[in-house]
Simulated assay, not measured.
Amino acid sequence: MTTGSTRLSKPARREQLLDTALVIVRAHGTDNLTLLSLAEAAGVSRPIVYDHFGTRPGLLIALYRRLDDRHRTASEKALRDAPADPREIARVLSAAYFTCATDMPEWTAISAALKGNQEMEAIERELLDAYTDLMTTALRPYSGLTQEALRLRCVGALGAAESMAAELNRGRTTATEAIAALTDLTVAGLAPETEGAIRT
């Protein structure tokens, strides 16, 4: 993994460092990721790593943003390819969510490592808002709810998705079951409350 002798542009070096950092987290956990361990694994000097990330929280935040970018890109691609049908829209969003949750288990570990960090909390809110907006926009044509009501239900669905992803990563459910459950939950949330109410 030593590529320090190769002269890279600054953006390319940053990508190489983030790739290496993800390998460290996946193999050894976030506790073993430091600026020093990253420099050693990447075969570069410590000042290069400090120049890119400044601090360990800065490195972890950069990793978190990168994983979120991958998640969002996968979701946007899934939406572009999906038929114009509410259940299919909900299904592809659910499938993209759980694919990222299983392919990128370090996402949760990085978030946990940054608990209590004010900058990270602000970034998590920002990214959750952006993903909620993506989901709301995709489902809006199929819902009789107001924009505000639909968005709130999307927030609830994403909270449920996070819990389901934890179950999936613990081996307590399968991806197929999680996708089906989140799809059902999302579709059920599209209708106004009165339509789903039990009539007596």
Rank of each mutant, 00 (worst) to 15 (best):
residue 25 V to A: 13
residue 134 L to W: 06
residue 58 G to L: 05
residue 84 A to R: 13
residue 92 V to G: 01
residue 12 A to Y: 04
residue 112 A to P: 01
residue 112 A to V: 12
residue 122 A to G: 11
residue 60 L to Y: 03
residue 126 E to H: 08
residue 37 S to Q: 07
residue 37 S to T: 15
residue 21 A to C: 03
residue 23 V to I: 11
residue 79 L to W: 04
residue 68 D to C: 08
residue 36 L to D: 12
residue 121 E to N: 07
residue 66 R to I: 01
residue 45 S to M: 06
residue 113 A to H: 09
residue 2 T to F: 11
residue 124 E to D: 10
residue 52 H to A: 15
residue 52 H to Q: 15
residue 41 A to N: 11
residue 37 S to N: 07
residue 139 L to G: 08
residue 115 K to A: 11
residue 14 R to D: 10
residue 4 G to F: 08
residue 124 E to P: 00
residue 59 L to A: 06
residue 111 S to T: 08
residue 10 K to A: 15
residue 52 H to L: 06
residue 15 E to Q: 15
residue 32 N to S: 12
residue 61 I to Y: 03
residue 10 K to N: 12
residue 53 F to P: 11
residue 65 R to L: 11
residue 78 A to W: 07
residue 59 L to F: 04
residue 108 T to S: 15
residue 15 E to P: 01
residue 10 K to Y: 11
residue 33 L to T: 02
residue 120 M to W: 10
residue 30 T to D: 00
residue 116 G to L: 08
residue 52 H to I: 02
residue 37 S to P: 08
residue 42 A to F: 04
residue 76 E to I: 06
residue 32 N to Q: 14
residue 15 E to H: 11
residue 47 P to C: 04
residue 137 T to Y: 02
residue 75 S to E: 10
residue 47 P to L: 02
residue 54 G to T: 05
residue 51 D to C: 01
residue 129 D to N: 14
residue 51 D to S: 14
residue 98 F to W: 09
residue 94 S to I: 00
residue 94 S to K: 04
residue 80 R to E: 12
residue 15 E to V: 10
residue 61 I to G: 10
residue 4 G to W: 07
residue 129 D to R: 15
residue 14 R to T: 15
residue 122 A to W: 02
residue 6 T to L: 14
residue 115 K to V: 04
residue 57 P to S: 07
residue 61 I to F: 02
residue 10 K to P: 13
residue 79 L to P: 05
residue 33 L to R: 06
residue 100 C to G: 13
residue 6 T to Q: 14
residue 119 E to K: 12
residue 139 L to D: 10
residue 76 E to D: 13
residue 97 Y to H: 14
residue 133 D to C: 05
residue 67 L to I: 13
residue 109 A to S: 13
residue 139 L to T: 09
residue 29 G to R: 03
residue 129 D to A: 14
residue 117 N to H: 12
residue 63 L to Y: 01
residue 104 M to R: 15
residue 82 A to H: 02
residue 92 V to I: 10
residue 62 A to L: 04
residue 106 E to A: 10
residue 3 T to C: 02
residue 120 M to I: 00
residue 115 K to F: 01
residue 133 D to R: 14
residue 43 G to E: 07
residue 35 L to R: 14
residue 89 I to P: 02
residue 35 L to T: 12
residue 76 E to G: 06
residue 42 A to R: 06
residue 70 R to H: 14
residue 38 L to R: 09
residue 28 H to I: 00
residue 131 Y to D: 13
residue 138 A to S: 06
residue 59 L to V: 04
residue 5 S to Q: 05
